[in-house]
Design a protein around this nucleic acid. Structure first.
Length: 438
RNA sequence: GGGGGCGUGGUGUAGCCUGGUUCAACACACCUGCCUGUCACGCAGGAGACCGCGGGUUCAAAUCCCGUCGCUCCCGCCA
């Protein structure tokens, strides 16, 4: 018999169905046995009376365990008393397809919240909780909407190599791996390769893929492996074009998300998906620091925001400008990558920006320096050795258009969007400095 | 890498400050029995932890001290 999803049971009253899912609860009473079944679409009650004719079935249910994977067949019956939708399945037969051990290592029912370490150890069980499934349904809708928007705008999807012969970023720590008889490095970002696509004349590209950072960062928003959402576009006038693209792109993705899953997100996480108005507020770094100073906060490092500063600035933007997002622009060159373009009349400042969303940095973007000589000079100024990145510098020697782009943290977005406390529970399988399993 | 917090049955917690007859408790899960429809089912009973690990102080340590490991948060780094 074809499987019926739990969400469709209400349309099958009076019919024989087969439901497949997990046993959430068993209430085995003297006269009647009740099962609460869970599949990805919802919960349903299944019932059978104890009787001599049903002895085999009754006995099977008597030894059934929670979280076993089962197939239940029976007739859908309307019964207004039943809390799971006013319908239940009168069980004709039950097959245990995958039995579960009696003692579960963590509570899947949601009554208790095991500590984070144990939840990650038993991630596949933790993920059975409906709210965790929703996180990844949200991720799916967002990624899909982002791709839709890019396709409408003529972008080409690329997949850049994750094994590299030299480090892709100046500062960030890099993982070294054995590559036959020599070392290789895991890509810290697709930066060099999306710029290569600009030199190749692709004009507009995007990539959603893994990035690796060997930073021993112990915060709720860092991972050693994460999914980076990247794009790069040619023939721009300035980083303003990149920001103008990003805000419309995010607006589109969030609008699609609100329409598709807004109600479910509200019911599950008690947060409303807000479709942001464009343009997003823009604040040059110098102004941002003045605002923070007025609010009594001065970051330790000159010319940059610390995490507390990012939170306070977002608070200011929410209160005064009524927006969840803010572009912080015109970062000092000292703190930015060598390939960020500088302002013509203010070479100490870059055409680089960060995007803050409710106090968390979700994007770094910039117009890139595409003039070979200027780029080399900036690399030398940062003390970089040119030889390992010569292949990259060569991109700019044979006719590369002006261009810019950004990198966007997918899990950070989910974390902020769904108001989750850390990146680990919105990452399918988290990787951190001390976490390589499961 | 620097600083703070935490580590008690399968899970979540109490006890720790003010060491010793509430020092191993409570809830969930599990086991046995009972229960005419439950829906966080209920009721009765039961099993399960040498209190992260090592050392020290003391007549006596889950409790105080030191070390160590793990987790977590803040800072640094960033997506």
């Amino acid at each position: 018999m074809q499987r019926t999803l739990i969400k469709d049971l209400h349309a099958a009253v009076g019919r024989e169905v087969a439901v497949q899912g997990w046993v959430k609860a068993i209430r085995d009473q003297k006269r009647v046995q009740f099962l609460i079944l869970r599949d990805p679409t919802g919960l349903a009650q299944a019932t059978v009376e104890r009787s001599p004719e049903k002895a085999v079935l009754n006995d099977r249910i008597a030894v059934l365990t929670r979280e076993s994977a089962v197939t239940v067949s029976g007739t859908v019956v309307a019964n207004p008393i039943v809390k799971t939708g006013g319908i239940e399945i009168s069980i004709r037969d039950l097959t245990v397809d995958g039995p579960a051990d009696r003692l579960l290592p963590i509570d899947v029912s949601g009554v208790q919240e095991p500590n984070p370490e144990i939840r990650l150890n038993w991630r596949f069980l933790d993920l059975r909780r409906p709210e965790n499934l929703l996180v990844f349904q949200v991720q799916t809708v967002i990624e899909h909407a982002m791709r839709e928007y890019w396709l409408q705008e003529g972008f080409v999807e690329i997949h850049s190599p994750k094994l590299m012969g030299s480090a892709s970023e100046s500062g960030a720590e890099v993982f070294t791996v054995e590559y036959f008889d020599r070392p290789a490095y895991l890509a810290q970002s697709p930066q060099f390769y999306k710029q290569m696509a600009m030199a190749a004349g692709f004009e507009r590209v995007f990539e959603i893929g893994p990035a690796f950072r060997a930073d021993p960062s112990f915060t709720p928003r860092h991972a050693t492996e994460f999914t980076s959402v990247d794009m790069e576009m040619s023939w721009i006038d300035s980083h303003e074009d990149v920001m103008a693209f990003e805000e419309r792109w995010l607006q589109y993705a969030l609008e699609r998300l609100r329409d598709r899953l807004g109600t479910q997100i509200h019911d599950t996480f008690d947060v409303d998906v807000v479709v942001p108005a464009v343009p997003f507020p823009r604040l040059p770094m110098a102004d941002a620091l003045k605002i923070l100073a007025r609010r009594g906060h001065t970051p330790e490092r000159a010319g940059d925001l610390d995490p507390a500063g990012e939170r306070l600035l977002s608070e200011y933007v929410a209160q005064e400008l009524h927006h969840q997002f803010v572009f912080v622009t015109d970062y000092p060159a000292a703190g930015r990558a060598f390939y960020h373009m500088r302002h013509e009349h203010e070479p100490a400042l870059t055409k680089g920006y960060d995007l803050l969303w409710n106090g968390i940095e979700v994007t770094t973007g910039a117009q890139r320096e595409h003039r070979y000589n200027v780029l080399v000079a900036q690399a030398e100024e940062k003390g970089l050795s040119l030889e390992p990145i010569q292949f990259y510098l060569d991109f700019f020697k044979y006719g590369c258009p002006p261009h810019g782009g950004f990198g966007f943290g997918l899990s950070r977005m989910l974390m902020v969007l769904l108001a989750r406390p850390n990146i680990r529970e919105v990452t399918f399988v988290y990787r951190g400095p001390t976490r390589l399993f499961p």
